[in-house]
């Protein structure tokens, strides 16, 4: 199992996932299919069923944005796309950014915890031959540690980038519509769900980001995460509950103590 507590997929979920095949079958209905798929993915994200969400995502053909744009152009010429179609496309990209960040974190977590090479051991009563063999094993182990650390750095970079893609999602933020829909769709539930997803996912992304940075000893960047969350430009702090902010500050305090241990000031200077 992975760290980011994955919930199990039920029979009903499997049916929902299978139904996506039918939705995307007819390219002329792709806009509608994308909206329906988004709705299903929202429910999966809200219940922490990331694998199920990824399965739905993978069933949406990757050329869908193109298909939707072309369908619209053949129907309406050069008129601007409907707000609800634009919003659905943006939401789909938001989901992709989140799933990518999640997968990157799981890869990193797997590598960090399970792929670490284990140190060879030797009994005090070992024979000469065993000692020679052991020395050889230790050298090999050291090389493996180097390799492991190198790829840990690379994976950390990827996951940090992916998480920032969510946190700093351009033009208003992750899961925030850019265009106002005429509210004749009876779909105000969608906006509410997206807001709840922000409240659920953004604090958890921040805490995953902190754990990657902290575990790879990038303590200064741990503290500077405060700048990102407190910024007026992105206003991420608004989706945090008090208790979540308290937990975050506790985590930053841990990083700060590490900096003090390294003879730096609490912010890493």
């Amino acid at each position: 199992s992975t760290s980011a507590n994955e919930a199990a997929i039920s029979e009903e979920d499997k049916q929902k996932i299978a139904a996506i095949d039918w939705l995307v079958f007819d390219p002329s209905q792709r806009a509608e299919a994308l909206k329906q798929s988004n709705a299903v993915m929202r429910t999966f994200l809200a219940t922490r069923k990331y694998k199920a969400c990824r399965e739905v995502f993978n069933k949406i053909p990757s050329d869908s944005i193109d298909v939707i744009t072309k369908n619209w152009q053949s129907q309406a010429g050069s008129a601007p796309q409907l707000p609800e179609d634009d919003n659905a496309i943006r939401e789909y990209i938001c989901v992709k950014a989140y799933l990518d960040a999640h997968d990157a974190f799981n890869d990193w977590f797997e590598h960090y915890h399970n792929a670490a090479p284990s140190k060879p051991t030797i009994a005090p009563s070992a024979t000469f031959q065993e000692r020679v063999k052991h020395e050889h094993e230790v050298k090999q182990y050291e090389q493996e540690v180097d390799r492991w650390q190198y790829s840990l750095i690379l994976q950390s970079k990827t996951v940090v980038e992916c998480i920032y893609n969510v946190l700093l999602f351009p033009d208003g933020g992750w899961m925030v519509d850019q265009r106002e829909e005429e509210d004749d769709m009876g779909d105000s539930g969608r906006t509410h769900q997206m807001m709840l997803l922000r409240q659920l996912c953004i604090p958890s992304m921040c805490s995953l980001l902190h754990s990657v940075l902290h575990n790879t000893k990038q303590y200064t960047r741990c503290i500077q995460l405060a700048d990102v969350i407190a910024s007026e430009e992105h206003q991420l702090y608004k989706v945090f509950r008090k208790e979540e902010l308290q937990r975050l500050l506790q985590m930053m305090r841990e990083s700060s103590l590490q900096l003090l241990d390294d003879n730096k000031d609490p912010l890493g200077y």
Partner: peptide, 12 residues
Amino acid sequence: TLISLSKLSALA
């Protein structure tokens, strides 16, 4: 960063 941390503490 001091301002950011102060703001987050205030909100917490």
